[in-house]
Amino acid sequence: MKYSYYPGCTLRTKAKDLDTYARKSAEVLGFELEEIENWQCCGGVYPLSSDEIATKLSSVRALNEAKVKGQQLVTLCSACYHVLKRVNDDMQNVEDIRVKANNYMKLDEPYEGETQVLHFLEVLRDTIGFDELKKKVVKPLTGKKIGAYYGCLLLRPGEILGFDNPENPTIIEDFIRALGAEPVIYPYRNECCGGYISLKAKDLSAKMCDNIMDSASGFGADMLITACPLCQYNLTKNSKATVPVYYFTEILAEALGVKGEEE
């Protein structure tokens, strides 16, 4: 199975781990991430205003690349997933945006939202299956108590993203279980870490991250996992708490026994 793969800006730089471990794990699990050519940054945030067209074009380009190859488009970063999926929804359902974007793009064939956008976790859940994943685990993470940190961008708005129940998600908990660890459910797992606000108002982000970390450790989490580089940064840098925060792909690679290969 081959997927088109959109890594996104941060996975080439600060969040290399998120990317590397995903590719290694995919190999073990029998699918390939084929990086699309000449991808451009998604912008990190979805342009909400209905008259924003140009800021959506980099996503449309990536989506169309996958369409031309006849592949589903996989991402790892929550922000990329959020932006690509919402732009794709616009291309499917918002005529004004679809027409204007295609006018800019001048593609051989207009892009109308044909590509399916998937998060890596959705591939694990819906294509590989968590039961199958469990069978491939060679170093189960037994005894580890792990809190899933979803944040905002994977879940909301649920109507468009359709990733999981936005108020009580389960996909990462099921993932944690498949790896042999114990998921810790805490109510702040879908609360915001502050996102881009940490550039100009670190204090606000710090307060929010503390709430998240306190709730998670209060319910007994030894560590958190996330899919978002910015969440990882904010939780690690802005919170007083010391609970470690890893990318979900890192513990996946560990459980699959491919983490230490290069070391």
Partner: peptide, 14 residues
């Protein structure tokens, strides 16, 4: 350690 994502997001928003 600031991820690129933070900068592009902030630029887009601000």
């Amino acid at each position: 350690d600031v991820p690129q994502q933070l900068l592009v997001s902030a630029f887009r928003k601000f």
